[in-house]
Amino acid sequence: MADIKHVIEPERFGLWIAATFVIALLALVVALISLTRVSDLMYITQAETILLNKKIDNANTSADMPAPPVQEEQQ
């Protein structure tokens, strides 16, 4: 049973564990950064939607108003 060939040498388990932990921490940092970016993007998108709705409402109210009478020049 002593001739078992391990994929990772038992002497290097600590190094592999440390490297895996560092990669997991980097993945966590990237995930948190992406969450904040998505949150900011969602806020900006909602603000733009509100502004567009206000512009549409203003356009509709100005379209409902009668146009001012055009004064013709007399010659």
Rank of each mutant, 00 (worst) to 15 (best):
V7W: 10
I33E: 06
M65H: 09
L15S: 08
D57M: 08
N60M: 12
N58R: 11
F13Q: 06
P10I: 01
K5T: 13
A31V: 03
D57I: 03
I33S: 06
K5V: 15
M65L: 15
P69Y: 02
Q75S: 15
I23W: 02
L35Q: 09
Y43A: 15
T49A: 15
V29R: 02
R12I: 02
P69L: 04
L28S: 12
A59M: 12
L35E: 11
I17S: 03
F21I: 06
F21E: 13
A27H: 02
A2W: 02
P10T: 01
K5P: 00
Q71C: 05
T61A: 14
A31S: 13
K55H: 13
M1C: 05
E9P: 03
M1V: 05
E72V: 15
M1S: 09
I33H: 03
M65K: 14
T20V: 02
V30K: 02
G14T: 02
I17F: 02
P69T: 01
S39T: 12
D3R: 05
P69G: 01
A67I: 09
A63S: 11
V7M: 10
I33K: 03
I23T: 05
T36L: 15
P69D: 11
E48M: 11
A2D: 10
Q71V: 13
Q71F: 09
F13S: 01
P69F: 01
T49Y: 09
D40L: 10
A59Y: 04
H6Q: 10
A24P: 00
V38F: 04
G14V: 01
V7H: 10
S39Q: 08
A19H: 05
L51E: 14
I56Y: 05
T36R: 11
S34Q: 13
E48P: 00
E11T: 03
I4R: 05
A24C: 07
D64P: 00
V30E: 07
V29N: 01
V30F: 05
Q46H: 10
I56M: 07
V7L: 13
S39L: 10
T61M: 12
I23V: 08
V22D: 10
A19V: 07
L41E: 08
L32G: 07
Q46S: 13
L35W: 08
T36A: 14
V70H: 04
E48L: 12
R12W: 04
D3M: 03
S62M: 12
L15H: 10
A59N: 11
F13Y: 07
A47L: 13
E11H: 02
I50L: 13
G14E: 11
E9L: 03
A18E: 11
L32F: 11
I56D: 12
I50K: 07
T61E: 15
E9S: 09
W16F: 13
L26A: 08
D40K: 07
N58L: 13
I17W: 00
M65C: 10
I8G: 00
L52V: 14
L25C: 13
W16R: 03
L32T: 09
A27T: 07
L28W: 05
P68V: 01
R12L: 13
Q74R: 14
E11S: 09
S39M: 08
L28V: 07
I17A: 06
T45A: 15
I56L: 14
E9F: 01
I4Q: 08
V38Y: 04
I17N: 04
I44H: 07
Q71G: 08
T61H: 06
F21A: 12
